[in-house]
Computed example of a mutant assay.
Amino acid sequence: MNATTFAPQEVLKQLEWRYATKEFDSSKKIPEDVWKVLEQSLVLSPSSFGLQPWKFFVVGNPEIRQQLVEHSWGQKQVVDASHLIVLAIKEGVNEKDVDTYLSRMSEVRNIPVDKLEGLANMVKGFLDQPSDVFDKDAWSAKQVYIALGFFMFTAAMLEVDTCAMEGIDPTKYDEVLGLKDKGYRTAVVCTAGYRLPSDKYANMAKVRFKTEEVVEYID
């Protein structure tokens, strides 16, 4: 793939096409080959130090999804969308997580673990900052939002509709999905699938500030 694979105007067209989908067609499912690309967009998302302090829970069980509606301000996207993805942080990321990541790096890049000691010390030193000046879970949540952006952009390029949802009760999500016992905590939710033609929001003009009001060049 090279820089000309997607023409700039094609990318812009897809960004204009996407919107926060309110009504999903529950009869339409994302094809498996398309979903696998979306899945990998989460896996391949960047994070600070590459530490990946997250996990993505794809909720397919219809009964569980129905339970989650009441913890989502009654938003029906939770049940109507093809896929429901709960993006969660790993609570209290620590030195053990660093060691796990560097072990994986050693395996993938064929580098002896002891050669990664300098990187290990740097990352562990970063995480070891006093809690009154550094909130590790808040930092992890920022990383999760990077993954959310990657997922939504990839979906737009594939003409899959999405709706990121913060209008949820994260604590209740954790309870229903048993995330706390797994060491994770809900940060944000994203639904994905295909819009209903009747969704009035699909054809509404995007309301954005003018480019020159939000982008400033400092030469």
Rank of each mutant, 00 (worst) to 15 (best):
T21D: 00
W35N: 04
L42I: 15
S140T: 10
D128M: 09
S140H: 04
K124H: 08
F209D: 04
A88Y: 11
I111H: 02
T154L: 06
G149D: 07
W54Y: 12
K76H: 11
V133T: 14
V34Y: 02
A164W: 01
T5H: 09
M165A: 05
S26E: 10
G50E: 02
A205F: 12
K210V: 07
S82N: 05
M105P: 09
N203G: 12
A20Q: 03
L127M: 08
E63C: 03
W54P: 05
D135C: 01
I85E: 03
K180W: 09
K36W: 02
V59H: 04
Q67Y: 09
S131R: 11
S103L: 11
A192Q: 02
A20N: 07
S26I: 11
G118D: 14
L15V: 13
A120E: 12
D114R: 05
K182M: 12
R195Q: 13
G178V: 14
R65P: 13
L116Y: 05
K210A: 09
G60T: 15
R65W: 11
T154Y: 02
T171H: 04
A156Q: 04
N121G: 02
E159L: 02
A156Y: 08
A187T: 12
F153N: 09
L15K: 05
K96Q: 11
N2A: 13
M157E: 03
T162E: 01
V188D: 01
N2I: 13
F24N: 01
E70T: 14
L119I: 14
V133S: 06
V86C: 10
V133K: 09
S140L: 10
P62K: 00
F151Q: 07
A20Y: 06
G92Q: 08
L38V: 14
K136G: 08
F56D: 00
L158Q: 04
L51S: 06
S26R: 13
T154F: 02
P62H: 01
V86Y: 00
I146M: 02
S106V: 15
F57A: 07
